[in-house]
Amino acid sequence: MDFMNIIRKLQNTLAAFLLLASCPTVIAQELEKPQGDVILKITGHISRTNENGVALFDMAMLEALPQTSFQTTTIWTEGKITFSGVSLHDLLIAVGSSGARLRTLALNDYAVEIPVSEAIEGGPIVATRADGAYMSVREKGPLWIVYPFDLQARYRSELTYSRSIWQLREIAVVD
């Protein structure tokens, strides 16, 4: 293993530890069960679940988490759009995440990995709304991981665009 891989592993481990340490009281509680249609499934290295070691979320559960929004342009839409939803950071805290990477999966089976180190305050959100309206599957919904592209130049890259998975249905937290 080369030196840079060792450094990356240490950074990912530290990011996962800091994420866990930031909210220890939430981790001990069990998640409520979804009452509506399940729109997101989170598996893997999580400590808060609601069904057989898995965290299932309906829209109401996602909207009960702290909400955030930002306005940005994307390469897939026209003009500035206000996206709102739960930050990826807060979602990982809610499930007691302890992994280093997120394997995300869309309704059409598109899959991409996102390092947990990107799940920071002011970073990507799991958007449930665009300009205040729920997003249909046709409009890249119901869930879309959106980065604040206009707020930080580092987010305007092919790699970040590939991580902006729409029609999100599942996240697996892995080492």
Rank of each mutant, 00 (worst) to 15 (best):
P148N: 06
E113A: 14
L102H: 13
V86N: 02
T104Y: 09
F57V: 09
W76V: 07
P142S: 05
A55Q: 00
G132E: 06
R129D: 14
V86S: 04
D90S: 09
L88D: 02
P148T: 00
E78T: 08
R103S: 14
L143M: 13
I75T: 11
G99N: 05
A106R: 13
T68I: 12
L62E: 01
Y147A: 03
R129K: 15
D131K: 08
A60I: 04
L102F: 11
F57R: 06
L107M: 15
A55N: 03
Y134Q: 09
V86K: 07
K80S: 12
L91I: 11
T73V: 01
E113L: 03
A60H: 15
I125F: 09
Y110T: 10
V95Q: 07
N52K: 15
S69F: 12
S87P: 05
R48L: 07
T104F: 05
A127G: 09
V137Q: 14
K140V: 00
S87M: 00
G53V: 11
S98H: 07
T82E: 13
T128Y: 10
I120Q: 14
T128H: 13
D58M: 04
A60G: 07
G96I: 05
T77G: 05
A55M: 08
L105P: 01
D90T: 08
T77A: 13
P66L: 00
I145S: 05
T68E: 11
S136I: 03
A60S: 09
I93C: 10
Q67C: 07
F83H: 05
I81R: 15
E118N: 14
L102T: 04
T74A: 02
N52A: 04
R48T: 04
D131L: 03
Y147M: 02
V95H: 02
G99Y: 12
L88M: 10
R101L: 15
P124G: 14
P66D: 04
S98N: 13
A64N: 12
G53P: 04
T72R: 13
A106E: 08
L143V: 06
R129H: 15
I81C: 13
Q67K: 13
V146L: 10
L56P: 02
L107W: 14
I75Q: 09
M61H: 08
E63T: 06
G123Q: 01
G122P: 03
A64K: 15
S136G: 12
G141Q: 06
G123S: 12
V112M: 15
R138E: 13
E139P: 06
G85A: 12
G85D: 02
K140Y: 02
P66I: 00
G141S: 04
